[in-house]
Amino acid sequence: MTMTSDHGRLMDDVYRYQRLFYDVTRKYYLLGRDELIDRMDVRPGQSVLEIACGTGRNLAALRARHPDARLYGLDISEQMLLSARRKLGAGVVLAQADACTFDAQSLFGIARFDHIVCSYCLSMIPDWQRAVDEALRHLAPGGQLHIVDFGDQAGLPRWFRTGLRAWLARFHVAPRDRLTDTLDNLGGRVARVEHRGLYRRYTVHARVTG
């Protein structure tokens, strides 16, 4: 069995029942998602892909804010996609795929996107650097990759950071402390990298312009 299928099966096991109350519980600690959506400059007709779209919560918010955008989502977990399909219905194209290796042309009939969103997914993807590379590979010229995820919590008490990370590990989540360094080292591959910490670096927002 491949690593992709192993991770997909793990995510299905994790979310088989959690997906039923995921949106209600996660709003208390997946902070900064709405701020990211509010800061996105999506123009009518532009394409937006969310990688690891989960229950479709962010795509629903994007659709409400940008009704003329073309929306797409992928997730490795078929269980999560069950909830996303029920929430979103028609108008948003969804597919099961691995964030580290996917063919958007085959999945969606479109090779590159004006905007790509990674919301609290890199902290759950074992080979998260490869997922960043794959997102950039599918970014249209001048397009933007938007990331929100756990930061290094540098501004918070040590006891809080230790407890948070121990609790997150129970759900196979690991904050990527080198995320901003990795983005800063993209060098000539992209036009611009911006990032900022929120809530004492509990959360990091990043925007990469291709």
Results as ranks from 00 to 15, higher is better:
residue 202 Y to A: 06
residue 5 S to E: 15
residue 117 V to D: 08
residue 162 T to P: 00
residue 136 L to G: 11
residue 98 D to T: 13
residue 64 A to P: 01
residue 11 M to E: 13
residue 164 L to K: 14
residue 52 A to S: 15
residue 177 D to I: 01
residue 6 D to W: 08
residue 124 M to G: 10
residue 132 V to M: 06
residue 45 G to T: 06
residue 53 C to Y: 09
residue 164 L to C: 04
residue 40 M to P: 03
residue 18 Q to C: 00
residue 124 M to Q: 13
residue 9 R to S: 13
residue 197 G to D: 12
residue 188 G to S: 13
residue 93 V to N: 11
residue 165 R to E: 15
residue 104 A to D: 05
residue 155 G to L: 05
residue 125 I to T: 12
residue 137 R to C: 07
residue 101 T to V: 09
residue 78 E to V: 13
residue 12 D to I: 03
residue 172 H to T: 04
residue 26 R to N: 13
residue 12 D to K: 02
residue 28 Y to S: 04
residue 154 A to S: 15
residue 113 F to K: 09
residue 179 L to T: 03
residue 52 A to I: 02
residue 147 I to K: 06
residue 29 Y to P: 00
residue 59 L to F: 03
residue 106 S to Q: 15
residue 143 G to R: 09
residue 32 G to T: 05
residue 201 R to F: 06
residue 104 A to Y: 03
residue 69 A to P: 03
residue 187 G to Y: 05
residue 202 Y to T: 02
residue 102 F to L: 14
residue 100 C to R: 15
residue 153 Q to H: 14
residue 148 V to P: 02
residue 183 L to I: 00
residue 32 G to V: 04
residue 91 G to H: 13
residue 204 V to C: 03
residue 81 L to K: 11
residue 3 M to K: 14
residue 192 R to C: 09
residue 99 A to S: 14
residue 34 D to K: 12
residue 110 I to M: 09
residue 57 R to E: 14
residue 88 L to Y: 12
residue 158 R to C: 01
residue 181 D to Y: 01
residue 115 H to L: 07
residue 39 R to K: 13
residue 96 Q to R: 15
residue 61 A to P: 00
residue 112 R to T: 15
residue 30 L to P: 01
residue 33 R to Y: 02
residue 130 R to E: 12
residue 114 D to N: 10
residue 81 L to C: 10
residue 47 S to Q: 10
residue 32 G to H: 09
residue 77 S to L: 10
residue 124 M to C: 14
residue 154 A to E: 09
residue 196 R to P: 00
residue 179 L to S: 01
residue 65 R to G: 04
residue 52 A to D: 04
residue 166 A to N: 12
residue 166 A to K: 15
